[in-house]
Write a protein that binds this DNA or RNA. Structure first.
Lengths: 352, 352
DNA sequence: CTGTTAGCGCCTTCAT
DNA sequence: ATGAAGGCGCTAACAG
């Protein structure tokens, strides 16, 4: 069965019907008499015929393809999300075209432009900062349906978690364990609205606990994280707990602790953020504030697909805020350095 | 600029030229007079025009899209590979459509069928077992260019590493460290030719060392890995070293050791396979036989793209065997349970 | 229920 | 160097 013969007319000829009928068999089987339908199905099978996606897309203006823009797959949190997207999309009969942007704004713009040219029916994206994203403006200008994942912004349809509340809860938990010197570790704040959100939560949590000396360590390059953290942990007045803005940082925090001679959680508590699957198999198992990455992907697809079906793009009001969940591992415990039970928390200025 | 006006004729009209000329400007700029070219470029910019990918694909029979079939993104090894594929594809001007198969043969077939219908120009895939894969037969039957990644098989074009030699080297290294009770830990052997390859290497390594009691633990479900391993480590005559068929298993092996009260590497050495990035940040850092996942993805894309350009599908002879590299972490050390120092070191052939 | 007709947007001879 | 014309494969009105 030569490749050239695989078009609708050949099937039609072989079945002794018209092309339109063949088309109907594939699109509205109910509109064709059972006998004819069987005839066509038979012919199609013999020829190994499958409708040509490009032709169909050109004609119907619907590609059944979703574009996906993510920073990187090297962070398992996005790999897990993409897996969720891929599964949900497949179930809805959509293919996906992912593009990775390395957290770079210029690549985000390129990705959107490329995807726009690819005739995708909609896009799911996680951008650095939705507030000033040119990529999003372009997208909105094009009128293409889209949903943000992880990002949270009132003007856009988003599937996210309340990172600020989640971060505040992390701090509260650490405080409840007797910690007061809690350092927050983050990637470049400017590069991500999520990081900013979590930082705000950290500040709020510290304030709520009456701890007025929040300390932030910003680690621009992941490669340098372990060094920077080791230095911080070696300094006098070192923290007894680390709240890391993501699990990859938390894992490095644990390593830095060991390199510094500190045992986790005995000498140092470490809590991460994201809840990547691998964290639960580590030793110590990672304590972390888990986001439902897989479900975020799934919900993003479902919202998008439903909107497309209805013919209208999702808007800010369609946003979904999914629940976060603290995942109690083994990397965090009571503060052993605390002064006897009920003593006043020592005030102290610390500047890294 | 309404969406409807974004076709080649509108641009042509606005520029005062014919559609053919606009097409040339986008495809063979050199064939158009500079002045006309500028005129067209201007008009296109004003209208926000971009050639419609479906129409172009329909006309040229080339989509500039590559299909990618992988088991899962939940194993970082494939996520890293996909990242490599995505980057290389983008650089070559190709988009990718990934489909995940959960190591299931039926899903592999579906994936190939779906991708075939999507008009992809070629496919990159990692299948369970290339020897008896119906998906591959279908693909070959369709005459579509494809490249396997990770899989190794003489009849197919593959980008892989010599897993058997790599595994044998792992065993040799453990033997050199004084280990003789070395257990191999693997997922379901039947589900993956890679696992089988590595197992063969293990057997060879053991035989070469004169160790005639190889022990294999097959862990069908990752979830049960830690339990199974803990049991094994608690049994009398427990191994002093674990060779795990992939890093995810190695991480679980380390956890099982701790749950059993064994310290790694003091009481138990653990070596993994794959070299996932996160392994190097763990505590202890994972000792592992690293595959260049990112590069494998890149090479797969390059081989595929070049073949497509030449108009002929890659064949078995185009296969590439990339070098593996032992990554010396902290999860493996000398056997402390060994008999006194100068026991006879078993003769061993080692061929990297 | 089925066939005829007319494009979707683009590229590509062939002519000029 | 540019234009005119035809068709890639399919679907959606409209007839019958």
């Amino acid at each position: 069965m030569p490749k050239e013969s695989r078009n609708i007319h050949n099937v039609a000829a072989r079945a002794g019907v018209s092309a339109a009928t063949v088309s109907r068999v594939f699109n509205f089987p109910a509109k064709v008499a059972p006998a004819t339908r069987a005839l066509v199905a038979q012919a199609a099978r013999e020829l190994g015929y499958q409708p040509n996606a490009s032709a169909r897309t050109l004609r119907t203006q619907r590609s059944r393809v979703l574009g996906v823009v993510l920073p990187t797959l090297l962070n398992p949190v996005f790999a897990e999300c993409l897996q969720g997207i891929a599964l949900a999309a497949a179930q809805s009969g959509y293919a996906i075209v992912p593009v990775m942007t390395s957290y770079e704004d210029s690549l985000e713009r390129q990705a959107v432009a490329q995807l726009l040219a690819t005739n995708v029916d909609g896009m799911i994206l996680a951008v650095s900062n939705p507030a000033d994203s040119q990529a999003l403006q372009r997208l909105r200008g094009a009128g293409l349906p889209y949903v943000l994942a992880y990002n949270a912004h009132a003007e856009h349809p988003c599937i996210s978690v309340d990172g600020e509340a989640a971060a505040a809860e992390v701090v509260a938990r650490l405080v409840a364990l007797g910690h007061s010197r809690i350092t927050m570790v983050s990637g470049t704040l400017a590069a991500s609205d999520r990081a900013q959100q979590r930082y705000r939560g950290y500040l709020r949590g510290m304030a709520d606990a009456g701890l007025d000396v929040p300390v932030l360590i910003e680690v621009p390059f992941v490669a340098s994280a372990i060094d920077a953290l080791s230095r911080h942990l070696n300094a006098p007045g070192r923290p007894t707990a680390l709240f890391c803005s993501n699990d990859l940082l938390a894992i490095r925090g644990i390593r830095a602790a060991h390199l510094t001679g500190l045992a986790v959680p005995r000498d140092l508590s470490v809590i991460g953020f994201d809840g990547i699957a691998i964290g639960q198999d580590l030793t110590p198992a990672l304590s972390t504030m888990a986001q439902p990455s897989h479900d975020m992907g799934r919900h993003a697809v479902e919202l998008l697909v439903q909107s497309i079906a209805k013919g209208r793009a999702p808007a800010g009001g369609d946003s979904l805020c999914l629940p976060y969940r603290f995942c109690d591992g083994e990397s965090c415990g009571a503060n052993r350095l605390a002064s006897p039970p009920s003593c006043p928390v020592p005030t102290q200025g610390e500047t890294p």
